[in-house]
Design a protein around this nucleic acid. Sequence first.
DNA 1: CCTCCACAGGAAGCGCAGGAGT
DNA 2: ACTCCTGCGCTTCCTGTGGAGG
Length: 399
Amino acid sequence: MANVFEQILEKETVFKDRNLITPHYTPRELPFREAQIKEISEILSGLINSLKVNNLFLYGKTGTGKTSTVRHVISDLLDYANKKDSKINAIYINCRNHSTKYRALLKCLKELYPNENFLGFSAGFVHEKLIDYIKENKNSVAVVLDEIDKLKELDDLVYALTRANDEFEKGSISVIGISNNLMFKDRLDPRTKSSLCEKEIVFSPYNAEELKEILIQRVKLAFKENTVSDSAINLASAIAAKESGDARTALMLLLRAGEISDKKEKKTVSEEEIFEAKKSVEEEIIFSMISTLPSQEQLVLLSIAELSLKKTGITNLSGEQEKGLMFSGEVYEKYQKLAKNLGENVVSTRWYRQYISELEMYGLIHTTNSGPGQRGQTRLIKLGFDAEKIKNVLEKELN
DNA sequence: CCTCCACAGGAAGCGCAGGAGT
DNA sequence: ACTCCTGCGCTTCCTGTGGAGG
């Protein structure tokens, strides 16, 4: 019998380099983000001349290329700075992993002094040390705060970072905030807001055509030649565009489809595999999103799922029956019943509306304002994914 | 035209948990 | 160990909006 590892590792595959199609990979080319790249670069170019540049705030839904774009610009900037002997540091911080002011500052220091460890030093010391670094080295430092909405004490941190600029004769700190939470900006302290959002750049979702281009480009990198059919790419981009305009979903579709082809020992990826991949990707996304939701929000979502399974639908703007559409009010009623049955407390209508907005932001539901023929000013709610699947996941989550 | 309904979403404030300062 | 402070989840109150109906 052949060696097991030989069987596994030397198996025929459709991939040339599987890593290049995972979400972690930052491609060198970023189609349809030229405008944003240019805008960000123009702003950051001042750093080369040791000027303090405007703080930057980027927002857009998940998978719209915010992080990739920033990483791209930063790496170009550092390359150029190297050539010109310009003193620039760029620090990338994912606030999900460094969620307090202290941890974020610590991460900055770690980048500036790679060989030293400041763990355990007081917050004040860490802050001083950061300022000292810039005073001594006269560097321009750009701090990227990704998923900035996950950061606690954000007001403090932004204040600490930007206020320091007054003390420098040469060198500076600039902050680039990235968020996919559109409401987030409004929750900020007015001073932080004006400081952080000196310049704002919006990333809108990709449409099907754009997703297609992105996929074609990635397929060239990650798959062997002529393994992925055009129709498969078309289908994958159409699915992703319809659901969210999220490039990550589109890439995941291709990745899974490739894996399915390998498993079947097929040498190509066709529409069939994309369809199969769609199921598993959907479930993955749904599961990972839902399981991190607060239980109250899960309850609201479950109410929507149950209603859309039961209801026949309501008449929409064009006067036709649309399935799975429901009023905000009836969802709240359903939610009240469900919560009572499960012994959970029931939140007020105001907070319930907050939940609805958040669920929409995550792409789990879609809402539209009611038009003529409907009850006044209300929201029509529709589930973003298959009701049956969501219900299954939720019922497990909620026991 | 006015009023009522069924909501949307802003503003203020409350109680709590957990971290910092002393 | 103790206060003080702050962010968070939430409620209460409020103003605004647009269709329905008198």
